[in-house]
Design a protein around this nucleic acid. Structure first.
Lengths: 228, 228
DNA sequence: TGCACAATGTACGAACTAGATAGTTTGGTC
DNA sequence: GACCAAACTATCTAGTTCGTACATTGTGCA
């Protein structure tokens, strides 16, 4: 298939020619818009600035996305979709429960760390009281799988007497998310206030180990822990 | 002392008279500005809107705070000061280490919960990569006491063989903060995605108990846990 | 080949927004 | 009661920002 990499083709005589590429234009706009919104927020991002960085024009933004809010919503949905797709890569089948849970937490920690702009979009969305997420049919459907994964690991762990019973997988997901999310979302203020660079590889390695530890200690039976 | 409650006094003939009250005007502007910034963010908040809600005027905002960023910085410092002052109310002296730590975590959880607009200011500041916090001499000085408190409890706990050794009080503070902060900061998106109202008193009580549990299990020696 | 419609470029305007200018009133001091 | 700095009011402006009107070009299809 002949993909179009360059935005503008040229006629044989060298004069630029308009080229139609709806999908490419749309994608290009969405990419730039996502960066700008993640960086500056909904009200902070500027349509003109987004348009300027695009290979396209402001006219096309309105043509494809309606208005600024429509563009923001599309960027938000895109961020969720990308990240949830990435999560599908995690495979804990066949691992013993404790190892599976450790793996899940490490993966979540790393994944959040690697997708800072997704984290920022979620922060921004929370500033807006999740109003736009609420309007999105798409996003809610994307979030069930994460729970299935945890629930599976947890129930195996309980069955094999490694984990204590009575915990709720959604709550577990909440706790893991809290630690992994905060690591990215509040790094700036925490680093400044306590005068530590929490973004350094060493600091991240330490935090990661502690987060794993914290979750495992929470879930595992006390008698299993004592045996360490 | 004669405090001024009404913004405008009136002459005997009933005509409004201009009244001077620098401190009151400043404080009034700061209050309204804090609300608006916490609600809408730095770029989202409107000077005109703030001025309109004030008992004062736009001119006075510039008179006292220079520009929009100056006003934002003042609001940020105010938020930190208020919350840190509130934290001083916590007293764990005389409590056994485990109870003291439990108390500390519960207090932090409740305190964050009660000061949502502070949390929002910190979120907003993180969106801005803590740039304004960086410019503030005032704020950094406010944050040492929190660590002293934790450090004291922890070292007592280790000495009395309830807590395992080798943990860093700042890291501990990080973990407690992460859980308590996330509870407020991400409530909107989490509630919507998992279709639970995490703001309800019941949900909050559950989460609170789990957070306390999580921290205690992380800090306590395994043999002490097993004895429960 | 020509038609209908999708995709794109250019220019502009109405509303908004941060901030400035100019002048007035107040309360304390000597 | 004259004087002055601080506190305050009313009004204006330069620049920005979202969004649109109108014109033009490309493409699939009858």
């Amino acid at each position: 298939m002949a993909t179009r990499d360059d935005a503008r083709r040229r006629k044989p005589d060298g004069a630029p020619t308009r080229q139609q590429d709806p999908e490419g234009t749309r994608r290009n706009i969405l990419e730039i818009a996502s960066e700008e919104f993640a960086l500056n927020g909904l009200s902070g991002a500027r349509i003109d600035e987004i348009a300027a960085r695009t290979r396209s024009s402001k006219r096309m933004i309105y043509y494809y996305f309606g208005d600024k809010e429509g563009l923001y919503l599309a960027a938000l949905e895109n961020a969720y979709r990308l990240v949830r797709e990435g999560e599908a890569e995690l495979d804990t089948d066949g691992l013993p429960p404790v190892e599976a849970l450790r793996r899940l937490v490490e993966f979540t920690f790393d994944h959040h760390h690697q997708h800072e702009s997704f984290i920022r979009m979620v922060m921004i969305e929370n500033i807006h009281h999740a109003d736009y997420l609420d309007r999105s049919e798409v996003i809610r459907q994307l979030n069930v799988t994460a729970i299935d994964n945890i629930a599976g690991i947890y129930s195996r762990g309980v069955a094999e007497a490694w984990f204590r019973p009575g915990l709720d997988p959604v709550d577990l997901h909440w706790q893991i998310s809290a630690l992994c999310f905060f690591n990215v979302s509040n790094r700036a203020t925490f680093s400044r206030i306590f005068d530590r660079d929490l973004g350094s590889p060493e600091a991240q390695a330490t935090l990661r180990g502690q987060v794993v530890d914290m979750v495992l200690r929470y879930v595992m039976r006390a008698d299993r822990l004592a045996a360490e």
